Structures are given as structure tokens and as C-alpha cells.
Amino acid sequence: MKDKDMNYKDAAAGPAVELYDFRRPDTISKEHERILGIFAGNFARYMVGTLSTQLRGMTRIGVESVREMEYQQFMHELPAHSLMVVCAVPPLDGKILFTLDPHISLALVDQLLGGPGEADGPARELTEIEMVLLRQVVKRLLLNLRETLENIIKVEPEIEQFEANTAYVQLVSSTVQVVSVLFKISLSKNSGHFRMVLPYQVMKTLLPLLQEHFWLRSKSSSSDRVKSSPEMRRLAANIPVEISVQLGAAEIALSDLLNLAAGDYIVLKSGRHDELPIYVAGRKYLWGRLGRCGEAYAVAVTRWDDTLAEESAAQAAAATAANDGAG
């Protein structure tokens, strides 16, 4: 049959053919990516407690992506002047690389030294003093890595290389497959990325252990999971929480607002002995009355907010209905 007689339309209607690149074979499955994502999420929760305590301010850390790529591609995407930390994790084979974007590195240093955590200038190399401060931060984060893995395998992470120049670090050869876990760190005034790079040599030992651990944990009863709550409370105990009290509110005409001057009074709707709402992280949780404690103003807590009880009752009712439906 001649080429012109072939029915290309029928061939095109079939399933799409996906090209396989033999130079970049996939070494982990989607299930493995999911397991690594769970592991990274647990690691992030430990890091939140450590950084919030160390910086004395609210810190948020989330997992943005888990990607497999060649090491040379990872290095190509890395911002200039990134902090590079190569760590051994015995008894696991191979080494893990951690990187920190330059702006978030400078913001961390600024907040460690009592500043607001700003880093508005251009990216630059870190000074020796900044490197010393960040090394202490990384050491604590490595303790978090050990805590994350302690129920899976006992590891002792050690810093082997600590550099502020990406050209000085060669974790593996350029064509070796690695998994890059991208975390986003949000401080009070700045945000940036923190990366954990796992080469194939580490993954081939770690992945089977993670897979077995999370499979067994998914089979455990809810009572076993409740036992971990005291540990979670201990980790969360030192996280600072912002509390504010609303003294009152008022409504005035726009013309009166425009004519306000120093010395004018705004009459609030609340009285001297009325209960005042107390907000925790921007949400109303409690009520109290204004008073004094020594030379400072204070608020005596009187009760929990009623909406919390209503929400708890609604959640309990929904859970009961779900259980009845399942039965």
C-alpha cells in the first residue's frame, strides 16, 4: 500500500502516544510523589514551630511542589547567591541538599537581630556574620528533620558544606535524577523559598521506609492517633499568638470625620463596664472586662464567645449524621 492511501485520520483518532526520553527516565511514581509530599508536610509543621520560636513571630511554611528533574536543571533554576547546605544523613546513603533564596536569607537575619524581617535591597552574597547566624538556624531545622523521621528511621543529620555561592557545590553529577521539594516560607514582612533536594541514592533507601510507615499509619485506629496529641501540644506550646482587644466602636458622619482635630473626643458605644471582644489571630474567641494589673491595663476574661460553641455543636451534629449515614 502506498503512503498516500494510508488512513492517517484513523491513526490520529487513537490514544495519544507519549514519547519516552531514555536520558531522563522517571525514577519515582505518582504514589511516591504523594508520599514525599506527606513527609515534606510533616517536616514543614516541625519547622514552623522552630522558626516561630526562634524569630519570636508568626511564621508560615507550606509545601508548594514535589518535582523530579535532572540536577543540572535544578541548578539552572536556582536564584543567584542562594544559600547552599549539603548534609549527610547517616545511616541513609548519599547526601541531601538544602537551599535558601537570598531574599529570605537576609530577611531571616534581619528578624533574628530584632528587625522587622525586611530585605528590600538587591540580592547579594552573605557576609561571614550572616552565615554564622543562618548556620544556627539550619542546625535547628536539621533537628526537625531528625524528629520528622524518628518513627521511621533514626538519622543524625550533619552539615558537611555550607556555602553562599552555588558554584562551589556539586551534590551529584549533572545528569543524575533528583527530587526537589519546594517550601514557601512566609515571615511577617517577607516571603521566599526553601528547597530540599533528594538525589536518587537517598530516595532508593528512604522511599520504601516512608511507604511502609504511611501505609501502616493509615491502618492504625483513631485512638492511636489521639495519643500523639500531647506531643503536638508540646510542639505548639511555644508558638507566639497575637491577641487584641476591641475597646469599642462608633459611627460618625463623614463631615464630622473630616473635621476631626487633636483634642476631639469620639464617643464609643460600649460602656465602662461592658464586656469587650478578645481576638486571637484576628478571630473573636473570648470576652472580657477592662481593668488594671499593677501599672498596666489588663483584661479579665469572662467567657468564651458563643459562636465557638455553636460551631462545635454544628460540627458534632454533622459528624453524627455522617456516622449514621455510614451505618
Rank of each mutant, 00 (worst) to 15 (best):
K4S: 15
K9E: 03
P15M: 05
V17D: 00
L19F: 13
R24D: 04
D26T: 14
I28Q: 01
H32V: 06
L36C: 06
A40K: 02
L51T: 07
Q54M: 13
E64L: 13
S65R: 06
Q72R: 08
H76M: 12
H76V: 12
L78C: 05
S82R: 01
L83K: 03
P91A: 03
D93F: 13
K95W: 06
F98D: 05
D101C: 04
H103N: 09
I104V: 12
L106N: 07
A107H: 08
V109M: 02
D110G: 11
G115S: 07
P122T: 08
P122Q: 04
P122W: 07
E125N: 00
R135K: 01
L142W: 02
E147N: 03
E156Q: 14
P157I: 10
I159E: 01
E163I: 11
Q170F: 02
L171V: 00
V172H: 05
V176T: 07
V176Q: 09
Q177D: 10
V179Q: 01
V179N: 06
S180G: 12
S191C: 12
P199L: 05
V202Y: 01
V202I: 02
K204I: 14
T205M: 05
L207C: 03
L210Y: 03
W215I: 13
L216I: 11
R217Q: 09
S218M: 14
S221Q: 11
S223W: 14
R234P: 13
V241F: 13
E242L: 13
V245M: 01
V245W: 04
L247K: 04
G248P: 06
A249C: 10
I252W: 09
A253E: 10
A253Q: 05
L258R: 11
A261K: 12
Y265R: 15
L268E: 07
G271D: 05
E275T: 12
P277T: 01
K284W: 06
L286V: 04
R289A: 03
G291K: 03
G291W: 06
R292F: 15
R292D: 09
T302S: 04
W304K: 13
W304Q: 12
D305C: 02
T307W: 07
L308N: 04
E310L: 03
E311H: 02
E311R: 06
S312E: 06
N323V: 14
N323A: 09
G325N: 08
A326P: 08
G327H: 14
